[in-house]
Design a protein around this nucleic acid. Structure first.
Lengths: 206, 206
DNA sequence: TAGATTGTTAATCGATTAACAATC
DNA sequence: TAGATTGTTAATCGATTAACAATC
């Protein structure tokens, strides 16, 4: 699959459709119209139809959309139909929280190992996840064909870690350090506190 | 301060300016032009000037922007010039990771307590943060005039916790449960995995 | 068939970029 | 003063919404 000319806002809405359709599917709903989905999600029906039609026509005139079929299509679009192995660099609180988040395995994203520089925790296993010396990062990524690199180190080391991940052949980076990491592979910079500042803004300006 | 008609995209860029200006300020830079900032941040100079002028004219023709003055203005706009007390409901891994995140106190956001339903941890203190019975949530919020409620429970309890927070007088909600929480106060739903799915999409479609 | 709802084109709306006069 | 850069208006671009023919 290769979709070109799909705009950023459309891509960002796809995970939201995915979540909503999983809920409908779990509830046993088997068809949904763009109008119903619009009401559930707070989008316009028109936008929903436009969005889906960026990837092909998944509906049926006069009927609507089959929840199961649409969910399958979106699963494929988001490439969540296959497993991904991941590593986390930075075995601090956030690293461990992510390592133990159950939602990942539900989507076949498997955190295989954590990496750190602290000799006190290197070599230990926490919640079935081994913690290795970060010096072994490149060889581990290569040997285990790790696709996803998760960065939970401090802001000073984040870019260096990203560079090393890319050199070792990682396919995408999810960065939680409060800095914009740059790489030639796809990157998502989480920037949690940006959302928090939007909250403080709204608390005082709404 | 009350700014109306500031569009969503502009609001979402303000934290990014804030971060960049803090860096420049820490580096001792004392003036910056929209062109320089544009280059640093990957925005257009025109957009930067438009954004700032939503809130007032902070620059000087022929000179540019004073880093310190601009940082102060944006700090005020984001209302980060005063302290906020916060509580976290859900003392699991993510709850603890957030409770111990140093970046908060840097912005005068103080996590005063965590709440949980697990009798095994209720009454304990972890990293200087007490864990209380969630039944005490409302009275604690009222008594300590807590402004910010952070939700790190599972998806089934998140909306109920949000409702209880609002009833107790909380001013804003930051939700990490994988569901859209709705409230009459400002809410940010983190939805971390949405970003992850954008990564899997891009891994396969770029 | 008639009713419903999609797929898709056209119209509108809003956000970004360009341009330039104001002015430091 | 001359050069630089803002603040702001106008032009462009892109995203959303409206409309409706196609069709199940």
């Amino acid at each position: 699959m290769h979709f070109n000319n799909v705009s950023e806002p459309v891509i960002r809405r796809m995970p939201k459709y995915y979540r909503q359709l999983k809920i409908l599917h779990a509830e046993g709903v088997d068809k949904v119209s763009s109008a119903t989905l619009a009401q559930l999600m707070g989008f316009s029906a028109s936008q929903i139809r436009q969005d889906f039609n960026c990837f092909g026509g998944f509906g049926q005139q006069g009927y609507g959309y089959s929840v199961e079929l649409l969910l399958n299509e979106i699963t494929n679009i988001l490439a969540l139909n296959k497993p991904y192995d991941a590593v986390i660099v930075g075995a601090g609180k956030i690293g461990h929280a992510l390592a133990n988040y159950n939602g990942f395995e539900e989507e076949k994203i498997y955190v295989k190992a954590l990496f750190d520089i602290d000799p006190k925790i290197i070599g230990t296993v926490q919640n079935q996840k081994p913690i290795y010396d970060v010096r072994e990062l490149e060889s581990y990524i290569k040997e285990h064909e790790i696709a996803l690199g998760i960065i939970t180190v401090n802001r000073n080391s984040a870019q260096e870690v990203a560079d090393r991940m890319v050199n070792a052949g990682i396919k995408a980076i999810w960065n939680f350090a409060p800095i914009d990491v740059v790489a030639k592979v796809p990157v998502e910079n989480a920037h949690l506190s940006d959302d928090l500042y939007v909250l403080t803004y709204r608390m005082n300006n709404d």
